[in-house]
């Protein structure tokens, strides 16, 4: 083998792929996915009733929004996620920061919080339905229980990781304990808190769908369960696509929020 005939392998170890290559690859994998789907449904390889063609699913999605008031279901779902999530954050952020700042506070709450993390939130659905009936309360409660204990633990851990030197610098500048927590520890950990919120919001969506499928007459999950009763697989798949799109949108929104809130984290050097 001559040396000038060296072939460049497609798989280069730890060598970053170019922008164009990444774009082509990303579009390619989706093109393959839809290609297989289109061929499978148009050639009759799969039962059209169970796997409708992608173009039909997209047409149905449009129709659901344009003619059948699906938007109100989507809005209800969004408001449940956002409402329950904000309530969880209102408790978890201050508590997590206090637990990460003061070991005495951690000693009180950590044994309680870590035990709750091992109880799967959906196991509370029967008792929540008995306590709260079928209104909004049991859904909000399920989402709240589902995310809050993880959120508290994540925020506590991030708070503990704030470097000791920052705390000691503040103390030697004459800061008292509340000032150290509010003006140094909290702003230092805030970027990590926003990341933790972004991760937990994705989890909140999971619990929302569970809540709406099990016990609801409104929302995206409920629409999908209704569609199942009438064998409308295209509507079920529309629901899945909309949930996915909403998850992606919220994730992008959080990423934008992070960039906007923390301009100092941008690498300029």
């Amino acid at each position: 083998m001559s040396s000038d005939n060296r072939s460049k392998p497609f798989l280069k170890l730890r060598h970053p792929a170019g922008r164009q290559q990444r774009l082509v690859s990303a579009l390619g994998i989706w093109a393959v996915f839809f290609g297989v789907w289109v061929i499978a449904s148009s050639t009759g390889m799969v039962n059209e009733l169970l796997v409708p063609a992608p173009q039909k699913v997209f047409a149905t999605t449009y129709d659901l929004f344009a003619a059948r008031g699906f938007a109100s279901d989507v809005l209800i779902s969004i408001s449940r996620v956002v409402g329950a999530f904000l309530m969880a954050c209102a408790v978890a952020v201050p508590l997590g920061v206090m637990m990460g700042s003061f070991p005495a506070v951690e000693a009180i709450f950590a044994p309680f919080v870590s035990a709750w993390r091992y109880l799967p939130a959906p196991s509370f659905i029967p008792i929540l339905l008995m306590w709260f009936g079928t209104g909004e309360a049991p859904k909000l409660a399920l989402l709240f229980i589902g995310v809050i204990f993880f959120l508290i633990t994540l925020i506590m851990d991030h708070t503990k990781n704030v470097r000791e030197e920052l705390v000691e610098t503040a103390l030697t500048l004459g800061a008292r304990r509340p000032t150290v927590v509010m003006k140094v520890i909290f702003p230092a950990v805030l970027p990590d808190i926003v990341v933790a919120m972004r991760q937990m919001l994705a989890m909140a969506w999971t619990y929302l769908v569970i809540a709406e499928i099990v016990a609801s007459t409104t929302g995206i999950g409920a629409m999908m369960m209704r569609a199942r009763r009438f064998l409308k697989t295209d509507e079920i798949l529309s629901g899945i696509i909309v949930i996915g799109a909403l998850g992606l949108l919220f994730d992008l929104a959080f990423a934008a929020l992070h960039r906007w809130m923390f301009p100092y984290l941008r690498k300029t050097r």
């Binding site: 470097r163 000691e168 702003p187 230092a188 805030l190 100092y264 984290l265």
Partner: peptide, 14 residues
């Protein structure tokens, strides 16, 4: 009354 400078960077990044 006793200010301290550490070896590790202690700038408040925000």
């Amino acid at each position: 009354d006793r200010g301290m400078v550490f070896q590790a960077y202690t700038s408040f990044d925000w």
